[in-house]
Amino acid sequence: MNYTILVIAFRYIRFILVFFSILTLFRGHNLPGGGFIGGLMASGAFIFQALALGVQSSKNSLRIKPSKLIASGLFLAILSTLPGFFAKGVFFAGTWVKIPLLFGATLKLGTPLLFDTGVYLSVTGVVLLLIFTLMEEWKWN
């Protein structure tokens, strides 16, 4: 299965899906979305590529091993609990930093956002690891 049109199409589709998944992740605090949904979406992008073009192609595009995604996601999630501990003496306490932007708008960055990013990464890694493993075993190419 090596259709040129799929190869070209997926280059863009994957890009768009990953872009939107990150968007979903970051807007998740105020609108539908978040780490779980974003992570499932992002993994979806790579899975469709794997279905269409083979696991190896998808893995190449991913560039990073799924297991490393899991590890970094968990690491980020745990890391995000520490600022609360140092600032307020309580683990997991949300801590926020407000960065003023132009035109009076402010960008609010907080540990929950960092935590959600951790969720995003680990969910992506989990789903990809699961499905890649099974696909490789069943020689889906």
Partner: peptide, 10 residues
């Protein structure tokens, strides 16, 4: 439950 299903399938 997605995780469980994947694990059971494996």
């Amino acid at each position: 439950s997605f995780g469980i299903v994947a694990f059971t399938l494996a």
